[in-house]
């Protein structure tokens, strides 16, 4: 699955919904969500229609479930929730604001920091690919709004780049 995610073209990303079924292990789901983030971090903001795809709806659903305050207590669930939000952003989820509100209602600053780290990676990837003067894709605008809500958090150096 990990290898598939590295080989998939953007137009085939919908196949990853097969690894986000309820029967799939948390580890498989995490790898699929990370794969979605990686694909779009490298490719740039998605086309609008992807936000209405079955994959995006499933990712949104997973994020909602993981961000339920009753289940988000375990670190594995929290990391999956953070990845699901990042994947929703990467897919251009039009209902991203609902997830942001849900995240905020969890009241868990550590989780917000984790989401901010993942979103910053996607944001930086998209920035690298958007040339100045390019039209502003809606998905990029939504990402900026969510990041602006999270980044009043102390901005941390995240390591030295090679």
């Amino acid at each position: 699955m990990r290898r598939l995610a590295t080989l998939l073209a953007v137009e085939d990303v919908g196949q990853l919904v097969e690894f986000l079924r309820p029967a799939d292990s948390a580890r498989t789901q995490q790898s699929a969500l990370q794969g979605i983030c990686n694909i779009f971090e490298a490719a740039g903001p998605p086309a609008d229609e992807l936000g209405r795809s079955a994959l995006c709806r499933r990712v949104h659903e997973l994020a909602e479930k993981c961000l339920d305050p009753d289940v988000v207590a375990s670190p594995q669930t929290a990391v999956k929730g953070a990845l699901a939000i990042a994947a929703a952003v990467a897919l251009g989820d039009p209902d991203l604001e609902q997830l942001a509100i849900r995240l905020s209602r969890c009241g868990r600053r550590a989780l917000e920091r984790s989401v901010a780290r993942l979103l910053t990676q996607v944001y930086e990837g998209w920035q690298r690919r958007l040339a100045s003067g390019d039209p502003f894709p809606p998905a990029f605008g939504r990402l900026r709004v969510v990041l602006a809500q999270l980044l009043p958090l102390p901005k941390e150096k995240t390591g030295t780049e090679t």
């Binding site: 995490q30 990370q34 670190p75 990391v79 953070a82 550590a110 989780l111 920091r113 984790s114």
Partner: peptide, 20 residues
């Protein structure tokens, strides 16, 4: 609690990165 949870999450993120 938030600091401890943050370290736990950071470690879990690193574990995931290692798996992938």
């Amino acid at each position: 609690r938030e600091e401890a949870e943050g370290m736990e999450l950071w470690l879990e993120e690193l574990r995931r990165l290692r798996r992938d």
